[in-house]
Amino acid sequence: MARTSKSAGTPVGVKMMQKVSSTRTFARIAPHVIPAVDRAVHRLSKGRTMMSTRMLPGVILHARGAKTGQPRQTPLACMPEPEKGTWILIGSNFGRPGHPAWTANLLAHPEVSVHWEGQDIPVRARLLAGEERADAWRAVLGFWPPYATYQKRIEREIRLFRIERR
């Protein structure tokens, strides 16, 4: 059984990872390391897992490049919404200034697929706005509080997409 902190029963390792992932050093290093390791582990495990899913649920996004139309595979953390059969993708870019490229890909080509729990699932991505985005953002912050730190660091609004089965 995992050790838990006294506050809210959160596993100690998760609390520590939340602190680490909120640092500027993590934001500088993680985008270069985590996706590469996730791709390798995903390939070696024949699509069964990714390293980052030890902390957060994740998908492999299969999309086309916004400008090139070339196929892109991007490992991403996600927030599953099992009651709706959907997922939220968070364009945090680890709290770095620009939007991540995959968000432009979804805006240009919203008909994509995700690899989730061993299955390739055709989905449609929709950028959230207004009250729907505000509701999703509150849920995202409850799910992984470091996203609030990322948002404070940058001027742009972090893009949230809901992906739904086609």
Score class of each variant (00 low, 15 high):
7 S>E: 09
7 S>V: 09
8 A>R: 07
9 G>A: 11
12 V>I: 12
12 V>H: 09
13 G>K: 08
15 K>S: 15
17 M>W: 11
17 M>R: 01
18 Q>N: 03
18 Q>S: 03
19 K>C: 04
19 K>W: 10
19 K>E: 06
21 S>Q: 07
23 T>G: 00
24 R>Y: 03
31 P>Y: 08
33 V>I: 15
35 P>W: 03
38 D>L: 05
41 V>W: 08
42 H>D: 10
43 R>N: 07
44 L>E: 03
44 L>G: 05
45 S>G: 10
45 S>C: 07
47 G>P: 06
52 S>G: 14
52 S>W: 04
54 R>W: 09
55 M>L: 15
56 L>H: 02
60 I>E: 15
64 R>E: 15
66 A>E: 08
68 T>H: 05
69 G>I: 04
73 Q>I: 00
74 T>W: 01
76 L>T: 05
77 A>L: 04
77 A>N: 03
83 E>G: 07
85 G>P: 02
85 G>L: 00
86 T>D: 07
87 W>N: 00
89 L>R: 07
92 S>Y: 07
93 N>Q: 13
95 G>E: 13
98 G>M: 08
98 G>L: 14
98 G>R: 10
100 P>T: 07
100 P>F: 07
102 W>Y: 08
102 W>L: 07
106 L>D: 01
108 A>M: 11
108 A>I: 09
109 H>M: 00
112 V>Q: 00
113 S>I: 02
114 V>G: 02
116 W>G: 01
117 E>A: 08
119 Q>A: 11
120 D>W: 01
122 P>A: 12
122 P>S: 13
123 V>F: 01
125 A>R: 02
128 L>E: 06
130 G>T: 08
130 G>H: 02
132 E>T: 09
133 R>H: 11
137 W>H: 14
140 V>T: 08
141 L>H: 02
141 L>C: 13
142 G>F: 01
143 F>G: 02
146 P>K: 04
147 Y>Q: 06
152 K>T: 15
153 R>W: 04
158 I>H: 00
162 R>Q: 13
164 E>R: 00
165 R>Y: 04
